[in-house]
Design a protein around this nucleic acid. Structure first.
Length: 298
DNA sequence: TTCCAGGTATTAC
DNA sequence: GTAATACATGGA
């Protein structure tokens, strides 16, 4: 089997942090490399100095699908320059050098975050893995490698029974996933149109789906469509904002949401990702974020 | 055992 | 409008 390979020059790109910061759930670390599936393509990515080496086993064409997914054309310095200058963000930027936002396929992103509610990231990964293995179509992998699958389309999932979905350990989220799959498959919600809407309309459209509230909608707006001001507010971010920006004052979630909408500027979504990853790292006890050395000393 | 997890919908004031 | 509560499942 032919292996297709390409080397991309990169600047300030921490692949590990990016693929493992709770925005995507299907990447696996293999030594210093990462393996996963983008669309219907198996991919292996390995950082190598100031470059990133990518390998696939199906003809990659112009590689734009990867450039887009990894957002290789984004100038990180320009993004970071828009952040408000305050101690917490400065610390987060120092601590998470090279953290990036991905641009994922909207349906996979939407379905994944529907499955994310009140679940730990380890669990979300497990559920999504089961869903892909059971309902996704197999993709080509290198010889001897374990099977890989594409994320099942809305059309496929719309025809899967709720009990079959529940068998993937997603519990009550099965109702929501099926409803969303049906709405998308039947054209009640056009995911391709959402990206061209003003953010308020885009958010409203996503939130019209059962099981999709403000937080999940903002995740999809940010990670799937690249709306730069979408700022998902979850329990981690609530804690982070409260501790880092409102140390002594009593604040409600509503006040914190309002603050998140107005304070972080034109690239608020990026700021959110830095704060999210920063506080999760600080918390330390997050297994999937432990460094290699820590693993070895345990 | 108890608490909590990248929330949301429903119901009750 | 804001405040509890149920919802599946599993890790810590």
């Amino acid at each position: 089997m032919e292996i297709f390979s390409r080397t991309f020059p990169v600047e300030e790109y921490d692949l590990g942090a990016t693929l493992n910061s709770g925005q995507a759930f299907r990447w696996n670390r293999c030594g210093t490399a990462w393996e996963g599936v983008i669309g219907h393509r198996w991919v292996r990515l390995e950082p190598c100095g100031d470059t990133l080496v990518a390998q696939t086993v199906s003809p990659p064409g112009d590689w734009m699908w990867l450039t887009r997914y990894l957002q290789l054309e984004v100038n990180l310095r320009t993004v970071l320059a828009t952040f408000p200058e305050d101690p917490p963000l400065r610390a987060a930027v120092m601590e998470c050098r090279g953290l990036r936002l991905l641009r994922q396929e909207p349906w996979e992103c939407l379905a994944s975050f529907i499955l994310s509610s009140t679940k730990q990231i380890v669990q979300i990964r497990q559920i999504i893995d089961l869903v892909c293995r059971r309902f996704g179509t197999a993709v080509a992998v290198p010889p001897g490698r374990k099977a890989a699958h594409g994320f099942p389309s809305a059309t496929i999932l719309a025809d899967v029974s709720e009990s079959e979905l529940r068998a993937c350990k997603m519990g009550f989220r099965a109702t929501y996933l099926r409803a969303a799959a049906e709405a998308v498959a039947r054209g009640h919600v056009h995911l391709t149109g959402v990206g061209a809407m003003p953010i308020e309309d885009a958010r409203k459209t996503l939130m019209s789906l059962l099981g999709v509230g403000r937080k999940i909608a903002d995740c999809v707006l940010l990670f799937g469509y690249g709306f730069p001001t979408a700022f998902p507010v979850d329990v981690w971010i609530l804690r982070a904002l409260r501790e880092l920006y409102f140390r002594k004052r009593r604040t409600t979630p509503k006040q914190l949401l309002r603050f998140s909408e107005t304070y972080f500027g034109e690239q608020g979504g990026y700021a959110q990702q830095y704060l999210f990853h920063y506080v999760r790292r600080q918390a330390g006890r997050v297994p999937e974020l432990r460094s290699e050395e820590e693993w070895q000393t345990r």
